[in-house]
Design a protein around this nucleic acid. Structure first.
Lengths: 148, 148
DNA sequence: TTTTGATGGTTACAAATGAAACCAGTTTGG
DNA sequence: CCAAACTGGTTTCATTTGTAACCATCAAAA
């Protein structure tokens, strides 16, 4: 019997990673060129735009970022005056983060671009393929959550 | 009408990235703990194990790595004496890379672990879900290739 | 030829990242 | 009440990464 070989091109972890990397890299062009944002900064903007006000910890949970990434992204957005920090009344360790007018404006500008990007990506698939990717991703997400 | 909001948790680029990141991180434990390899090093090992002999450029293409990553991974595997370089006869810029006995041994040891990882991941999905993820990923890959 | 432009691969430098130490404040148990 | 353990968040340091410049060689064109 022949020695075992792994075909990298068919190996799911590799394919997933490459796919995500390609998509993410292409999408990042939008917020990079437009506003010079990094991915953690974009996610922070996006999280706050979506939810209004959040703490750093909540941001990290929502957007799957390590707390150091959050900390740095928040610091940068604060430097740009895209967000402000408000100390929590009860717990002085906590800060509530909110977008400023400028931050909201940037968010509002980004949303349609993000949606268009996703739409155009999915438009290249058939209806059945779109259903497949959505279903498959959801299933894997669920499988990974449960694993712990 | 309400201002447009983007739900990050449903945004495909984000979901893909997070999924790939989680899977890849979990899988990386295997080659990291086992041999202290980085991802580029693992991919290099995997590429050479699969194909026998390759040039650095070919490796980069097969495994979607930037040439600096390849260069560094190759240097490290060479340092460990897991691979050797053979200059090309006709083109002296080119080097052909081949795993040594030690390299092959490490590869042979990794393959079943990699396959088991993939199998166990997919085992948590139903048959239909497995088909969906495979089909969806393939469709997106194709869509992205064509885009250029 | 000689020049010009690609190509395989490495290196240098700056930016992004992760792990762990850290600080301040808060909770818990004795 | 106080020490120990924990939590939100920041900083430090080492490692990884990407970009661009670079060296050597090769191919094409003048």
């Amino acid at each position: 019997m022949e020695p075992e070989i792994l075909e990298l091109e068919s190996f799911l972890p590799y394919r997933l990673y490459r796919l995500a990397d390609t998509v993410s890299r292409e999408f990042s062009r939008i917020y990079k060129e437009r506003h010079g944002l990094t991915r953690p900064e974009w996610r922070t903007l996006s999280g706050l735009g979506q939810r209004g006000t959040m703490t750093a910890t909540a941001l990290g949970e929502q957007s799957a970022m390590h707390k150091t990434k959050v900390s740095r992204a928040v610091a940068e957005l604060e430097r740009r005056r895209w967000l402000t920090r408000t100390p929590d009344e009860n717990d002085r360790r906590v800060e509530h983060l909110t977008l400023t007018k400028t931050g909201v404006a940037a968010y509002r500008e980004m949303v349609p671009l993000a949606k268009a990007f996703e739409r155009e990506l999915l438009a290249r698939l058939s209806e059945a393929e779109r259903a497949a990717i959505v279903r498959g991703v959801a299933a894997l997400e669920k499988a990974l959550e449960e694993k712990t």
